[in-house]
Amino acid sequence: MTERKITSRTGVGSSAHVLQVQPLLAKNITVDEPTIILIRHGTKIIRWARNEIELTSGDAVIVGEGESFDIINTPCSLSGTYEADWLSFSSEVVTDYTCRNSRCTKINEAYALEATSESFRKSFYHTTDVFTDSASIPDALAIGRMHEMLGWLDEYGICFGAHLRNGIERKIRRLISSDASHTWNIKHVASQLGMSEATLRRKLTAENTSFSKLIADVRMCRALTLLQVTDLSVTQIALEVGYESPSKFSSRFRHRFGFGPGQVREEMITMGTQATLTREI
């Protein structure tokens, strides 16, 4: 079975396959890049600001950059798994793309594409190849394929909207996300952002957050993603997000989400050889 991991290219985007074996609710998950998610098995519910959409096998969802959602992934009763693939776009790719449909609705939060066509799904997986086969696909062609997917959104009459939240929180999240294992401190981050520590603290307070809260949240959201899309052990994931103690990591993870990291993977060892990772289009 192919090792599961996040594949990415600087200035292009990233892709991964999600596998989950228990129905779990993850609250207040922030999506850091414009993303398309294609559901293979099970159902996905996304809730935000009194809105809710539900998706099932064959559906896709378009998610805007920097928005936060409550997400419920529920395994299929037949396969016993929730499986999906996501394709994230670097902000530069989206900015550089010229929308050909002047009537497109700008999506800043989430939008469901129900029962996507076979052609759409083929194009989606053709695009994910730019990450799994990066050695033989030049950057220019990789960006071209990403633009092809944005062209599909044109056909559906939608496009990614401009990010609406441009405060200091977004900048810090992007910085921390670049290396969640790094020992970040507020003085260093303030310096990188060209301001004093006191100014940074005031700005964070004005946005109703704090430096320590942001670091913890970015690390925990990253950990949840790694649990869903990689075969790394819980101990390895703890290290990947800056925790040398697996027990301390597990405690923080449970405090953030209400369930332990092991629950995401509880039956994955026994089901791993049964779970299909083939493309279904």
Rank of each mutant, 00 (worst) to 15 (best):
T10I: 07
V12L: 06
G13H: 00
S14I: 00
H17D: 00
L19P: 01
V21G: 11
P23G: 06
A26Q: 11
K27R: 14
I29W: 07
T30S: 15
T35H: 02
I36E: 04
I37V: 12
K44P: 00
R50S: 12
V63A: 03
G64D: 07
E67P: 00
F69D: 02
D70P: 01
G80H: 13
A84Q: 04
W86S: 15
L87I: 07
S88M: 09
S88H: 10
F89V: 04
V94A: 05
I107D: 12
E114P: 12
S117E: 11
H126I: 05
T128Y: 00
T132P: 05
D133K: 15
S134P: 03
A135W: 13
S136Y: 09
I137W: 10
L141V: 15
L141E: 15
M149R: 13
M149E: 13
L150A: 11
L153G: 09
E155C: 13
R165C: 03
I168K: 14
K171I: 01
S181E: 14
S181W: 11
W184M: 09
K187C: 10
H188E: 14
V189N: 04
S191D: 01
G194I: 00
M195E: 02
E197C: 02
A198T: 08
A198C: 01
L200G: 05
R201E: 08
R201Q: 05
K203V: 04
T205I: 04
E207N: 04
S210I: 02
S212H: 11
S212V: 08
K213Y: 04
A216F: 02
A216L: 12
D217P: 00
V218S: 11
V218D: 09
M220F: 02
Q236S: 06
A238Y: 10
L239C: 07
Y243S: 09
S247C: 02
S251E: 13
H255K: 13
R256S: 10
R256L: 09
G262W: 03
Q263M: 08
I269E: 07
T270G: 12
G272M: 05
A275Y: 13
T276Q: 08
